[in-house]
Structures are given as C-alpha cells and as structure tokens.
Design a protein around this nucleic acid. Structure first.
Lengths: 247, 247
DNA sequence: GTCGCGCTTTGATCTGGATCAAGGCGCAAT
DNA sequence: ATTGCGCCTTGATCCAGATCAAAGCGCGAC
C-alpha cells in the first residue's frame, strides 16, 4: 500500500512528510533486543538502521502489505489493529518506546500499524535481520522471548474480551498501562493515557460511549481521577485490582 | 498442583491412572518441531521423550504450576484455558496432534491444560530442550515460527471476541477447525467437533445456550448439517466464509 | 474573536445475547 | 427396565452495553 511504501524510500518519505535519517539513537533505545549482543554486533546493526519520524495518526503500514521492514519504536505510541470489511475494528495492541513491530514469519503484515501520537521509529530491512540471526543465535532467543511474552499478553486479552464486563476491562486496561509505564521507567501514577476514547473502545471491545461512562463511574466512585493532558490518577489500587482480576 | 505432579513421576502417574512409557512414536509425530533436525539430533531427542496417556477431562497442569515440562500432543484434543476467581472461563485454544504445549519463557504456566478427548502426549523436561536449543539453533528458529503463528491466531481471536456477533463467531470457529484438520491431513468436511457446547462457548465468549441456538439457526438455514458423532458438515462454504469475514 | 470540526460526555431507547427455567435424550450404573 | 446424571435444546424474560441523539468543550484556522 501507498503508506508503507512511503516509509521505505527517501523520495516518497518526503512526499508523505515523514522525516527519515540515519538512526544513531536507536541501538541505545532498542536495548530490549540488543541486550544480548556484543558491541561489534551493535555496530553492525547500527549501520542498517534508519530513523523514521511520523505525525500522529499516520498509517505506517496496512494489513496485507508486504512485510519487508521491521521497526523498533523509539518515541511515541503506536497502535496495531485489524479491520472487518464493514469497518469494525479491533486494536490488538499499543506499542511504547522499546517495543518491536513487524516481527512475523509471514511475508505480509497481519495487521495495520498507525501512530497514536507523533512517533519515531527505527526501521531496517527484514532480510538484514535474518542475516544477523544466522550469525547471532542469542538474538534468536531474545526474539523468541519477546514473541512468547506477547503471546501471554494476547491470552490475557482474550480473557478480557471474552469474559470481563466493562468496568473490569477499563480497570485492567489502566493497570496494564501503569505497569508497562513503570517497567519502562515512565511515571506509573498518574499514568499517561495518550489514546482516544475510540481507540480504547476498539482495544477493549466496547463503544466510545461505554468507555466514557465507565470512566465517569470510576471517577464518581473515587477509584480514579481524570487529570488534564490525558493523565489518569489511580487512587484506589485495591479496588482497581479487584475489578481487573474479576473478584 | 497435584495433577501436574502426576504427570511427572512414574508412581504418581499410576495413582492418577495415567499411562506413561518411553515414547517411540513421538519423534515422528512431532515433525513440526523436528523437521529442521538431523537424524542424530532426533535420536538424542528420542532418548528423553516419554509418552503420557490420559482420559478425557484430565487436567494435565493448572495455571500457576511450575512450568518444568513440555508436551507434544500425539493423539486426541486438548484445551487450554484461563479462569477468573469467580469461575468465568476463557478457553484460549484447542490443540490437535502435532501441537506443542508448554512453550513459555516463564517458570510457571500461564494457563491450565485439560484433555477434551482421551489423549496421548509426549513429554520431556524443559531443561533438556533448552540444552538442545543451545546446540541446534535451527530448532530455535522453528520454535520462533511456531510462537509467531500462534500469535497471529491469537490476534484473529481477539478480533472475533471483540467485534464479531454470535453467528460470525460460530462460522469462524467451524472454518478454523476445518482448515486445521485439512492441514493436518484429517477429514475437513464433515469436520470433527469433539468439544462440548460449553467448551465452544468458553472459547468464543458466549454461553452454551447461545452456541446451541446458533448451531440450530445455521442448520435451519442449511449452511451446516449436524451429524452424529460430533461431526458437522459445512454445506454452504460461501455463506460461512461471508459470516466469518464479517461481510 | 468566532467559526467549524472532532472528540467527549450525557441522556433515552433498543436489542443481542445472558440468564432463568424446563424438558428431552443418551447412556452408564443398579 | 429404571434411575440418575450430563449434555443439549428450546422457551421466556432480563439487562449490560449498543445505538441513536444532542449538547458541551477545546482548539486550530481565518
């Protein structure tokens, strides 16, 4: 598709007003993959990395596009989603800095990727990664571990989508954001919630109205406070955890 | 937990009426993992494999148990599920012969595993697999590919649970079973549906009543026929696909 | 400033699937 | 043959969350 193309050549990048340049920051930011690598491996990786800067709401690639590029998020928040032909949408995950994008053994992407906020990513061709993997089996291990923990998260999300009610879903969502922020060294309370009600709805299998009403309920019962700038303070962690675990 | 223990020693296996013995069939059946291995590697693998036979409805291990054992399903159907404290259940997947079980980087299982039909599994200690992986990086690759495709399936399931209605869920489910059966060389139409209404409900985020009613609707509209022995004939593939894709 | 537009909130109503309830059917145990 | 127990089906009713509708509320463009 057009937009994935845009991310792949310098000319089309200009056309789509995407900023691309050699990526220096990335080997540092993508420690999550690189922690198993030696310094010469990092150097080799750095040579093929390119930084991509996009506005909020930019489609990086769409479901079905040729999956020839991998990305590592270095700044901002991304969302991944799948669509049904009539427009129903399911967001399968949000990506924070450090997260990987495009991990797949297939030759097309199984989902679309769009920026929630202005974002910076570090991209490199999949072929090159595959070459690296041959030489550095430790990196294989690292990738497997990442896929594994994504899978565990996906299973939690299935439980949420299949069996939790609206309040439980929102509580789980806020706690998940908070825990992830903490793990990455960002403030975890109040937690930053950069995505729109409609993104939250499509992630939790609800409507924007229900998300809004449920936030209001939680606010009214003092479990959370809605602050400006898309921040949410988690006041009553015990109640939130009980809701999230479905007690 | 007690039942996982049972699968782990010869004495307790007897107590739980599980049949365990050295596994000869397994290296052949688990070609899905082993296809990248040389014959000496297979031989080494065979040495540590043990066959486990269980009745229908046997809990192999429960969420939270120490994840020290890996399994490969060689016969029968297994189900994996997560529970909420009040008993709500979400089945995250069904396993057919050839499927792997226990792939995880964590030291405890993230879900419970129970047999749907009488089943045979081939088990071996995780430590040994990890040793193998050090020596045979190709196997790493294979495992990563498996985790990757499980992840893709999990994302499809999120779309189903978050955004599809009951009819669409049932149609997707039947087509998924049929396609999987075909890929494994089992009959794909009529397709064998060994699990109970309640298992189907807990997999699709519905109730048994809704599953039953929806089967009846699809039968009435001639899209499917319910045959004896838990078989379902898919009559109108076009309609079923349209339902499943959500046109 | 104010206009317009997109996002959010709130209210009123509707509905798909849940819940509650009652048989039916197959099959193993007695 | 009868009983009991798990399923599955079907019917009646209910309700959480969807849908429809209408304001607020920023905020950037002009």
């Amino acid at each position: 598709m057009a937009l994935a193309e845009h991310a792949c050549t310098r000319e089309s990048a200009v056309a789509a007003r995407i900023d691309i340049s050699p990526c220096n920051a990335c080997p540092v930011r993508s420690m999550s993959v690189c922690s198993a690598l030696e310094s010469d491996e990092l150097k080799r990786l750095a040579d093929i990395l390119v930084s991509v800067k996009v506005d909020a709401g930019h489609t990086l690639f769409a479901e079905g596009d040729g999956a020839d590029t991998l990305f590592n998020v270095t700044a901002g928040t991304m969302k991944l989603y799948k669509l049904l032909p009539d427009g129903r949408r399911q967001i399968t995950g949000f990506l924070l800095p450090g997260d990987f994008l495009g991990l797949s053994i297939n030759d097309t992407y199984a989902y679309s990727a769009e920026s929630v906020t202005p974002a910076t990513l570090c991209r490199f061709p999949r072929r090159r990664l595959e070459g690296l993997l041959e030489d550095y089996p430790k990196m294989q291990r690292r990738l497997f571990a990442m896929a594994s923990s994504e899978l565990a998260a996906a299973q939690d999300q299935m439980l949420l989508l299949g069996r939790k009610n609206a309040k439980e879903r929102i509580a789980s969502f806020l706690l998940m954001l908070s825990e992830r922020a903490k793990r990455r060294g960002y403030p975890d309370n109040p937690v930053h919630v950069p995505m729109s009600r409609s993104d939250i709805a499509d992630y939790l299998g609800l409507t924007t109205e229900t998300v809004s009403r449920t936030f209001t309920q939680l606010k009214t019962s003092r479990a959370i406070s809605l602050l400006e700038g898309g921040k949410v303070r988690l006041n009553d962690m015990e109640t939130l955890h009980e809701l999230a675990e479905g007690v």
